[in-house]
Design a binder for these strands. Structure first.
Length: 114
RNA sequence: UCAGUCGGCCGGACGGCCGCUCCGGCAGGGACCGAAAGGUCGCCGGGGAGGAAAGUCCGGGCUCCACGGAUCAACGGUGCCGGAUAACGUCCGGCGGGGCCCAGCCCUUCGGGGCGACGCUUCAGGGAAAGUGCCACAGAGAACGAACCGCCGCGGCACGUAGCGUAUCGUCGCGGUAAGGGUGAAAAGGUGCGGUAAGAGCGCACCGCGCCGGCGGCAACGUCGGCGGCACGGCAAACCCCACCGGGAGCAAGACCGAAUAGGGACGGCACGGGAGCAAUCCCGGGAUCGGUCCGGAUCUCGCCGUCCGGGUAGGUUGCUUGAGGCGCCGGGCAACCGGCGUCCCAGAGGAAUGGCCGUCACGCGUGCGGUUCUCCGCGCGCUCUACAGAACCCGGCUUACAGGUCGGCUGAUACG
RNA sequence: GGCCACGUGGCGGAGUGGUUACGCAACGGUCUGCAAAACCGUGUACCCCGGUUCAAUUCCGGGCGUGGCCU
C-alpha cells in the first residue's frame, strides 16, 4: 500500500469527489499519471483522544488492506477521513462500506467529466 | 476472617490467520519513483509503548546564538538546619510553629479556666526593634495608644428622701481609671491573689515575651540561671531588606546534500529609466551610498540576452539512541543514597510502526433462572470483553488520571484457643 | 513536539484586596387604535479546586477549557 504523505496531496484530494459512510468519508481524485493508487488517512482531533484516533486509523488501514485488490484504480489518490463510529462498527460491515464507496466514487468521478 | 487507612509492586494469559517497523546475517544482481539529493521493492533470525509515555510545573544533559574572564546593576527564582544528588522548588533525617487527643500540674466563686509530657496530624517555615504602605464596615478609640456607656474622687447647684452636718440619689464641671459593657478579624501581655478612692505589672506566683550569660548540639535550636516589669498588633503568596542561584533559545535546536521559480553578484554583447527637444539642456520618477534622524542636498545607477558563481526555499539525509542505564550479590549509612564485583543490551517511528480479525480461559461488572435464612453457589446472556491512557532528542523529579489484583504496616470489629 | 496569551450576566467589554462599571439583548410599565422609536424600571455574572489573608473576582499553587505562533 502506497501512502499519501504530502500535505499538498491531501488538500488536492479534498477537492475531489467525496462519499460519506457511517464510519468514514472517502475522498478520491484522479492524479493523471500511470503510478499506483495511493491512500491517505486523516483522523482529526475531534474524533477523540490519541488512543482512539490511532485505533480508528489502524482499523481503516486494515479495511483498505483487505480489499485493496478490488476497486482501487491506478493513477488515483484516495483519502479516508475517520469518524468516531469507526471505533465500534462491525469490521465486515466496514469492508462492505468501502466497496460501495469505491463504486460510487467511480461513477461520480466520471459523471462531471474530471 | 472482615472493614478502613498508609506505603510498595503488578496492571490480562495462551493460540490461529493476515500485516507494519528496526537491527543482525545472507544475497549483492536488477527493477521502479525522482531533475538531483535520495527513496522503495527479497529470504532467515531477533527486538518492538507507559506507570503515568500525559500536563509541560521545576532541574539537567545535548545543540546553536552571544561571549576573553570577573564583578556590579536590572529582571526572575528559591528561602528553618544538616545531609543526599550532576542538579532541583525533589528526596532523607532533625528542629520549630499550628490543630486534635490526653497522663499530669496550677488556679477556682466548684460553673469552670490556664499550662501541658507522650502520641497522631499539618506547615511555601528568612527578616515586621532598615524603611514605606495597608488594616474596609462597625466602633469612643486600629497603632508616636484610645474615655462612648460605666466605676471612683473633688467642687458647684438643687434641697426631693432622711437629717442638722454628714450619708445617699439627681444634675453640671474638673480630674483619675483600662476592672466591666459594647464594636470588631484584631482593643495593646493572660489567669489568680494582694493592693487601691476606683483601678492599673502597682506588687507577687505560674505561664508568655525580650535582653544577657553558662551548658549541650556541626547547625536550626534546646535547656538552666539572672535581669527587664512589658517597651515589640497583623500583613512580606504588599513594596522591600538579607542570603543563595540563574546569559538566551530550543531536536520544528543544529549539521550536510539540494531543485523549479523569483531575486542577488561577476563577466561579455546590444542598449543607456520616462516625457519635451535636431542637439546642448530642462522637467518627472524608482533604487543604492554619504552625513546620528526628518526635510533638503551630493554622488552613482535604472533595460534586454547569454555564461558562470554564491546564499537559500520545497524536499532528502543526519542528529537518533549505551545511558547520572537495568538486574543480582556483597559492604557502608538511622535514611535518602553511595561504593565494589558480576551480568545484560532492553522501541527508535517520521501524515508518524509497535497492529487488525477470530477462538479459548481467568477476572470484573450488569442482568435472568434455580438452590439457599443471608453470605454465597451453579447455569445462561451481554460488555469496544477491560481502568487511565499511545513514545516523538534523552534523563532526574513534581503534579494530574486510573477498573482490578497482590504484599506489608497500623487501627477497629467478630470468632476460636 | 515546543512556545505564549486569555477565561467576568444571553452577547460584547472595563475594573479592583473590602457588595463588579457600561453598551446591546431579555422582561415589565408609560405613550399608541396596534406596533416601532423614545422614556422609566427589573433580573441575571467573576471557569473549577486548594492555600495566604480578618476578608480573594483580584495574590500564590494545581486542574479544566479556548485561542494564537513556530512548519
Amino acid at each position: 500500500m502506497v501512502r499519501l504523505k504530502q500535505r499538498a496531496d491531501f488538500l488536492a484530494a479534498a477537492s475531489g469527489t467525496k462519499v460519506a459512510t457511517a464510519a468514514f468519508v472517502l475522498q478520491g481524485r484522479w492524479r493523471g499519471d500511470a503510478g499506483p493508487a495511493r491512500i491517505g488517512f486523516t483522523v482529526s482531533r475531534k474524533v477523540g483522544t490519541a488512543v482512539e484516533r490511532n485505533r480508528v486509523r489502524r482499523r481503516l488501514r486494515d479495511v483498505v488492506r483487505r480489499s485493496a485488490a478490488d476497486g482501487l484504480r491506478a493513477g488515483c489518490d484516495y483519502v479516508l477521513v475517520g469518524r468516531r463510529t469507526a471505533l465500534s462498527r462491525q469490521f465486515d460491515q466496514m469492508i462492505e462500506d468501502f466497496g460501495n464507496a469505491l463504486r460510487r466514487i467511480e461513477r461520480g468521478a466520471r459523471k462531471p467529466g474530471r
